[in-house]
Write a protein that binds this DNA or RNA. Sequence first.
DNA 1: CTTACTAAAAGTCCTATTGACCTTAAGTCG
DNA 2: CGACTTAAGGTCAATAGGACTTTTAGTAAG
Lengths: 248, 248
Amino acid sequence: MINRSDSRAREQVLVTVDLVIFTVREDRLQVLLIERGQPPFEGRLALPGGYIRVGERLDAAALRELQEETGVDGSQLHLEQLRTYGDPERDPRGRVITVAYLALTPDMPVARAGTDARSADWRPVDQVLQEEAGLAFDHDVILREALERARSQLEYTTVASAFCIEPFTIADLRCVYEVVWGFKLDPSNFRRKVTRTDGFVEPTGEHRVQELGRPAALYRRGTARLLSPPLLRSSEVAHSQLSTAALR
Amino acid sequence: MINRSDSRAREQVLVTVDLVIFTVREDRLQVLLIERGQPPFEGRLALPGGYIRVGERLDAAALRELQEETGVDGSQLHLEQLRTYGDPERDPRGRVITVAYLALTPDMPVARAGTDARSADWRPVDQVLQEEAGLAFDHDVILREALERARSQLEYTTVASAFCIEPFTIADLRCVYEVVWGFKLDPSNFRRKVTRTDGFVEPTGEHRVQELGRPAALYRRGTARLLSPPLLRSSEVAHSQLSTAALR
DNA sequence: CTTACTAAAAGTCCTATTGACCTTAAGTCG
DNA sequence: CGACTTAAGGTCAATAGGACTTTTAGTAAG
């Protein structure tokens, strides 16, 4: 029941949890990456993550890593399991499989309150994916799949509001969609969709005066989790493409 | 770096792959289950699955188990990773996490060509989920999530055709939707949707004469994988509920 | 041969959604 | 005050889809 030489033997493996933590900063979709301080892939960028500990649940490990890396409070964010990656060659040190999680957080004031000494930093997703030297391990693939999942989630669920700090405006929310999807939406039609979908957002009654234009009504997250009918990407044909367009 | 007593230590775990294999038989959604021949959960029903072997990829392990259990050829089916379950108490023998896969196959002539001696058999999903004595391990939860995933996949993708043996009729395909979703659809509107969606099905030109009614045109699977716009459950309001309705 | 019956296939009608576009409201700045 | 900007709200037409009807093409019974 131990490994080596018998190909039919069970394999003892180490399990890690890796996090794709997205936020919308400076009107771009950004992902939290660390620079690896030791081999393998020393000096390369990687997704934050770590080994699961004895007796620890997967979700708990993901939440722990998230807090170590960002110091966020668990309530304000969206966390879901993405997929498990287990190719034998993905880690040169041996058989390590990783359970990837997708986290969506608002643009936190604390960027990297890492208990961890490793330097964690936000980087624009489109830029990371275009870079010649990719991420460590199979993290490029994970990041790509996370991006696709996030884009898809915005179609069918209300998670986009997880990127917003309450209270927020309809324009704030629209900006999330535009940044994640990589193209502009019609402001008027977007408002209609959001406000007429029960439980997507609820008005606070307050308004926010901004530098330019009419003051915008403020909202908080509603109770609905699913969008039906969905808000499809195919619809809302692009007014103008954003930089992220280069990815697809 | 070994386990016990230090809660911050990494845990060496065993990894299994468990399969939720769905098919549509006798106008019901059925799942392939095995009866466990040894502890733990001896005599209880469980999802087919097994340990990953040294150097084996997750997908390869899933495919291998699938073939051991059903003897299907890999080409005719749909296989996707569902989710990973890793609660520390899920297996009384120790730390074992499982990567669950969802497989959709047509009603195979060979029901259980198991190389494996264990008795595998098709059982109606609704019946299994209603039974007092549940499945072994956390397989009830996995089965429930697999069912929800399958239902959702039918909305957004063309995988329903993976349940059909080519060539098939529009009614065959509609039957898949009705059985998986648990309610009747309007035959006319369903045909319109399927035939007007590019790449969902393509006509063979042949017809199948049946006992009753006008002969039906035959189709094979199209090249499209995604349905846009989707075919939502919320729409197509139920004509009459089927037995599966009890689940929701 | 004719009629009844069934299911397939095709068409009609109406409503809801939504993309494109326009108008008005409410603030700032010069 | 007028120019400008964004929010908010409305109109219009195209489309998708639910409910329903009609026609087609087969089988089985009389």
